[in-house]
Design a protein around this nucleic acid. Structure first.
Lengths: 211, 211
DNA sequence: AGCCAGTATGGCAGTGGCTGCCAACGCGGC
DNA sequence: GCCGCGTTGGCAGCCACTGCCATACTGGCT
């Protein structure tokens, strides 16, 4: 039975999270070393010390295993959203949330940051991973839209959807350039990159004659 | 040998396009009727009168078969881009291209429009189709970014990428609401929906204090 | 007409992702 | 020590997808 009030989550759950991490780590490492196509689930499972059957109880597809860290990022966004003010304008608040989250990942110097960098790099050469990550992301953003719409009491999701998706797009571009730059050997600051992306979009909109 | 100067494309190619369409149509219809999971490639192939082996010579995955029409949309965007002015500002031109293309699809009243509507509806209930469509889209947009960057002579893709992706996001949202509204029984105008999305984004940016 | 080269097709066998089912197994509460 | 439940492993099977080879077709050339 799950615990809602207690201090630490029950042992079972922590154990589960633990093995999830372990499998994820093994998967990511193997993928980096030999590519996704060159890695079978059996191999990951064997190295992680579980049966293939169990692997699929943790992750629906092999790609998802490499994205454990990425989920962290999205979890943080989700919890940040709780701090938003329901009646302020959405866009600046959303942007602020992302600034907060991206800062937490500290340009790859914190442990989660390093992990994120590994994943985003791998995404650049592995189309199936990119695809999976994007669709995971899309699910999360959709959930966020639903939550924001409920929060603001709007009857229509359109506004929230447009803003969440466009901001999401700038963030994706930022993460991508960030990983690209690191890969190319001239690392850049993640937050700074995001601010540049945001700037490009804002400037372009403002420059446009009102219509 | 392929023909570059000639009137109509060579017979071989037209034939190929023909069977591609046929397989696509069969696939889409089956998917609508029994869902994607409930449909095997063998079944599609049998109904389309080709061998399964041949099916995979036309489409890399079964989902892609249902997206033939969607490719049309993207082709149009690609050819529109040729008309853009290299030194004007990007955002308004991009938006204009999309307005043009979405108008051509005429709110589902033209044949391609009807096809597009079928696909976008199906996407709402079939996650794997949504995923495939999005990644197809992403590929196309990436190609577009490369082209725009070359065209404007910039050495950095960041600007183009941000703008293409954010505009792409608004279009995606528009297509989605459009399909949703049709499904719910209160059809809306596609172009109008897009303009609303664009408006939401522009207004939000303009409302934000300069920073 | 008849031949040649390039290409489209089909069949077959194989890999591997993923699932359902059932049989242990382990752990926490009585 | 026993029970109940959640976790695991093994097995069998489905089906997406691929490589390989044999065959048929097409369009061009003499």
């Amino acid at each position: 039975m799950s615990n809602d009030n207690g201090e630490t989550p029950p042992l079972r759950d922590r154990r589960r999270a633990q093995t999830e991490q372990e499998i994820g780590e093994v998967a990511l490492t193997l993928f980096e070393k030999q590519g996704i196509d060159g890695t079978t689930v059996d191999e990951i499972a064997r190295l992680a010390g579980v049966s293939p059957r169990t692997f699929f109880r943790y992750f629906a597809t092999k790609e998802r295993a490499a994205l454990v860290q990425h989920r962290d990022l999205e979890d943080r966004v989700e919890s940040m959203v709780a701090t938003m003010h329901p009646h302020g304008s959405l866009l600046p608040q959303l942007e602020a949330v992302w600034v907060e989250v991206l800062t937490a990942f500290d340009n790859g110097r914190s442990e989660p940051g390093r992990q994120l960098l590994r994943v985003r790099r791998l995404m650049r050469t592995e189309p199936t991973l990119r695809t999976t990550a994007n669709s995971l992301d899309a699910e999360r953003l959709e959930a966020l839209v639903a939550r924001l719409t409920r929060l603001t009491g709007h009857d229509d999701e359109l506004d929230a959807r447009v803003l969440v998706e466009t901001v999401g797009a700038t963030v994706r571009v930022a993460l991508d350039s960030w990983a690209e730059a690191h890969e190319a050997g001239h690392p850049v600051d993640l937050l700074e990159t995001y601010q540049r992306c945001r700037g490009v979009m804002h400037d372009a909109v403002r420059a446009e004659p009102v219509g």
